[in-house]
Amino acid sequence: MSKSCCCSSKQRMILACSGGSNVGQAANQAAVELTREGFGKMYCLAGIGGGLQGFVQSARDVEEMIVLDGCPVGCAKAILTREGVTPGRYVVATDLGIEKVKDPRLTVLDEDVRRIKEAARASAGGLAAGGAPTSCGCADKA
């Protein structure tokens, strides 16, 4: 087997709206940190939004997806819906009691990021590990 093969237990795609507000940026930061913690792998929502074929196909094929939107406008979910992809697990930051505020500095609070990450983990049934750090699909053959 290749040394570069990770043989993860599950491919978990994380998509965040990464919008221009405190909650959008908190969702983005949560996706970054969840990726670094090995919970899953953040992927390019912009590529899907741009209709780039490989990105759209990857979103359709992935085993598990967690979508993090900042607010009820639901841009990330709308992008996926337009491409015919159903978001598997869905978290909206404002549904967690995080307030969307007018802040030109786009300040991201650690506490907000923590709550979004916690909700993401809970939506996955509390599975703390099993992300796809290098996204190799060879788990069953390892």
Binding site: K41, S58, D61, A132, S135, G137
Partner: peptide
């Protein structure tokens, strides 16, 4: 097996199959 080429194609997970520039399957 080149990561840069995979990234350019937008492939999230391997194995993947690309036919004439179109990603047909990713991650299985």
């Amino acid at each position: 097996s080149d990561f840069q080429e995979m990234a350019m194609l937008g492939v999230f997970a391997t194995p993947a199959v690309v036919i004439d520039g179109q990603v047909k399957v990713s991650g299985k």
